[in-house]
Measured scan of single mutants.
Amino acid sequence: MSIQHFRVALIPFFAAFCLPVFAHPETLVKVKDAEDQLGARVGYIELDLNSGKILESFRPEERFPMMSTFKVLLCGAVLSRVDAGQEQLGRRIHYSQNDLVEYSPVTEKHLTDGMTVRELCSAAITMSDNTAANLLLTTIGGPKELTAFLHNMGDHVTRLDRWEPELNEAIPNDERDTTMPAAMATTLRKLLTGELLTLASRQQLIDWMEADKVAGPLLRSALPAGWFIADKSGAGERGSRGIIAALGPDGKPSRIVVIYTTGSQATMDERNRQIAEIGASLIKHW
């Protein structure tokens, strides 16, 4: 067993022997301040990774656009098919120029040779490549099948209805392509620590998230040296922004954090800054 596999296998073990965790309302004060600064709703939840206990939450059962955070769930569904012998990570998928959609920095470079399922998941999570996500959605049967996968996990809230990039439209009061912070946090925890996926697939999923290259201005910008984070960000229309993450000190994750916002007129930089400040408060009061 590799060191990384050992780390993920012992996530519940280490967490069980940690000192009790206590909620700190100071972080919620910052979440509410972010709402004021952005002029928009902000949803927040913080779960203990081992027990699933909610440590703090704000608007945990209000719907927010998922945006690209759905790509972690998508690759979880792909990995479940791999575990069941219905898919192979090494299978190569070929596609054409007509398949390319807006923001496809990886797939646009491989029109000639195609990409493997493993490479597509890596591109979808680490670079948020939209064509990679659409190609992977095709392998599982489309958005409705991802929703069905989530329902089978016990998540009857999260739903995907459309493809990239239309799913980022974020129309107010439109339930399409949305989740709730509580539902997303619980589902992410199941994917990373539950028995739904094999140990190898859980490790692969967290490795992809740990290698995320496009979430630097968010929670990662607030992390002290030595902290662990595996995350996936999302951005959408109407001032929408979000991030889902597993993080913790001492090089291992111990909490799940989900943050979503929508309806702001603020710039992307300002949305990023507010999420980073929430992260800084979380870490300060850990």
Rank of each mutant, 00 (worst) to 15 (best):
Ile3Arg: 08
Ile3Val: 07
Gln4Tyr: 13
His5Asn: 10
Arg7Met: 05
Pro12Gln: 10
Pro20Ser: 08
Phe22Trp: 14
Val29Tyr: 04
Lys32Gly: 09
Glu35Cys: 05
Gly39Val: 10
Ala40Lys: 03
Ala40Pro: 03
Arg41Glu: 07
Tyr44Pro: 00
Leu47Glu: 06
Leu49Arg: 03
Gly52Leu: 05
Gly52Phe: 05
Gly52His: 06
Gly52Glu: 07
Lys53Phe: 10
Ile54Met: 11
Glu56Thr: 12
Ser57Val: 10
Arg59Tyr: 04
Pro60Ile: 12
Pro60His: 13
Glu61Trp: 12
Thr69Gln: 01
Phe70Asn: 05
Leu73Trp: 03
Gly76Ser: 11
Leu79Tyr: 02
Leu79Met: 11
Arg81Tyr: 08
Glu87His: 04
Glu87Gln: 08
Gln88Tyr: 13
Arg91Asn: 08
Arg91Asp: 05
His94Thr: 14
Tyr95Pro: 04
Tyr95Trp: 10
Gln97Trp: 11
Asp99Gln: 13
Leu100Asn: 03
Leu100Gly: 03
Val101Phe: 08
Val106Glu: 14
Glu108His: 11
Lys109Ile: 11
Lys109Tyr: 15
Leu111Tyr: 10
Thr112Pro: 14
Met115His: 03
Arg118Asn: 15
Ser128Thr: 01
Thr138Lys: 15
Thr138Ala: 15
Thr139His: 09
Lys144Val: 12
Lys144Trp: 09
Glu145Ile: 10
Glu145Pro: 09
Ala148Phe: 11
Ala148Ser: 15
Met153Leu: 14
Arg159Lys: 13
Leu160Lys: 02
Leu160His: 06
Asp161Thr: 06
Glu166Asn: 13
Glu166Arg: 12
Asn168Lys: 02
Glu169Leu: 13
Ala170Ser: 13
Ile171Cys: 14
Asn173Trp: 15
Asp174Arg: 03
Glu175Pro: 15
Pro181Leu: 03
Ala182His: 12
Thr186Ser: 13
Arg189Tyr: 15
Lys190Phe: 08
Glu195Arg: 12
Glu195Gln: 13
Glu195Lys: 11
Leu197Asp: 03
Leu199Val: 15
Arg202Met: 07
Leu205Arg: 00
Ile206Gly: 09
Met209Leu: 08
Glu210Asn: 10
Trp227Met: 03
Phe228Trp: 05
Asp231Pro: 04
Lys232Asn: 01
Arg238Lys: 13
Gly239Phe: 02
Ser240Cys: 08
Gly242Arg: 00
Ala246Asn: 05
Ala246Lys: 03
Pro249Asn: 08
Pro253Arg: 09
Thr261Gln: 07
Gly263Pro: 04
Gln265Thr: 14
Ala266Val: 12
Asp269Tyr: 13
Glu270Trp: 07
Asn272Glu: 06
Arg273Ser: 10
Arg273Asp: 10
Gln274Ile: 10
Ile275Trp: 02
Ala276Tyr: 10
Glu277Trp: 06
Ala280Gln: 15
Lys284Leu: 13
